[in-house]
């Protein structure tokens, strides 16, 4: 954000103007993706290869994207929902059954990411990136144990008032439920009461619940974050004092997947894009920018050297079992969780 944000906006505006001049492009593709998540090099490579003009629009949460698409008249072709949201999109009839599993490059998808619970056999979606929520701490401020959710739930004195927590309901609730020994989708009132009380109390010790981590963690404005690993790695590259911690009590994995909207205006170009990003070299471009792993075999060798053994990306064996993919809970559980979250957010 800030200056960098302004200059990227300006650059984007210039890019838009420049590409508007090249009216010869054969078609268009409108991508609706999370902010700061798409490699511009990937886009320009696709534009050159297929002579398609790509327009990229940002959103900041699954719910924002869902609300906007449901409202209609959006003009987007592609959206990138998180794992636990994909079934909602499918159930609501918003996605095109694009059958990426029959596409040429599908053979490159890692077997691990083919039969996923949110899209068995990949009839709708293609892996974009996956990662986890963990702890990032500026070790000049605090040098104790950082492999715990206590960093943001029971913060040490040095970190009070300097913590940023991702404003993502499921990830925050998951870590907190695990912190009290509960299971995801639990309806145990004793655990949930502790979760709510803890979050309401802990929030008074946080500085913000914001997205601008890659800028404010390196600059020292945040001393600790509970955030996604790729963003913390990008912060560490700017400031080597930043260390990454895996919450031993439990941490959530995420995977965002590319899907085509049912009312897409350019479904053929969207399918080309799906196939395009399953190519290992292109998938590596995705990861090189946002610093998250992708789900494509063979993309490793095209990735920057620094990513191959980054502590944020290579999960130590002792913490591997602490991670979990969040299932979609029953509607009444979701309802209860969002009421807890509303109380926390307010």
């Amino acid at each position: 954000m800030n200056i960098k944000w302004i200059s990227t906006t300006a650059a984007a505006a210039i890019a838009v103007m420049a590409s508007a001049g090249a009216a010869s492009a054969e078609g268009e593709l409108n991508i609706y993706n999370w902010g700061d998540y798409t490699n511009p090099d990937l886009i320009s490579k696709f534009e050159k290869e297929y002579d398609v003009k790509v327009t990229l629009t940002d959103y900041d949460s699954n719910d924002t994207a869902l609300a906007k698409i449901r409202a209609g008249g959006h003009g987007f072709d592609i959206v990138v929902p998180s794992a636990n949201y994909v079934p909602i999109w499918v159930r609501e009839g918003l996605l095109l059954e694009a059958r990426p599993d029959q596409m040429e490059n599908f053979k490159n998808v890692d077997e691990r990411w083919v039969d996923v619970p949110w899209d068995e056999g990949r009839h709708y979606t293609v892996p974009w990136q996956w990662g986890l929520s963990g702890i990032g701490v500026n070790t000049t401020v605090y040098d104790g144990d950082i492999n715990t959710s206590a960093i943001f739930l029971d913060p040490p004195e040095e970190l009070v008032g300097k913590i940023n927590v991702e404003p993502e309901m499921n990830d925050v609730l998951f870590a907190t439920i695990k912190y009290f020994g509960g299971e995801w989708c639990t309806t145990d009132k004793d655990v949930l009461r502790k979760v709510r009380d803890k979050l309401v109390e802990a929030k008074t010790k946080w500085l913000a619940m914001d997205y601008s981590v890659t800028d404010k963690l390196p600059s020292g404005e945040y001393a600790a974050v509970y955030y996604w690993n790729g963003a913390i790695m990008r912060s560490r590259e700017q400031n080597p004092d930043i260390k990454f911690g895996y919450p031993k009590e439990g941490f959530p994995y995420f995977m965002d997947s590319v899907a085509i909207l049912k009312d897409a205006k350019n479904p053929e170009n969207a399918k080309l894009f799906m196939n395009f990003i399953m190519d290992p070299e292109n998938a590596a471009l995705i990861s090189a920018y946002a610093k998250y792993a992708n789900g494509i075999k063979g993309s490793q060798e095209f990735m920057p050297e620094a990513m191959k053994n980054a502590p944020e990306l290579v999960i130590p064996a002792e913490y591997e079992n602490a991670g979990e993919f969040l299932a979609s809970c029953e509607p009444d559980v979701v309802d209860f969780y969002s009421r807890i979250w509303t109380e926390v957010q307010k």
């Binding site: 929030k203 946080w206 913000a208 619940m209 914001d210």
Partner: peptide, 18 residues
């Protein structure tokens, strides 16, 4: 910073994540 909401943000939240 998403923590000190005002009415406008509260309303926006109801149409998004809320």
């Amino acid at each position: 910073g998403g923590k000190n909401m005002m009415l406008g943000n509260l309303i926006e939240m109801q149409f998004g994540g809320g």
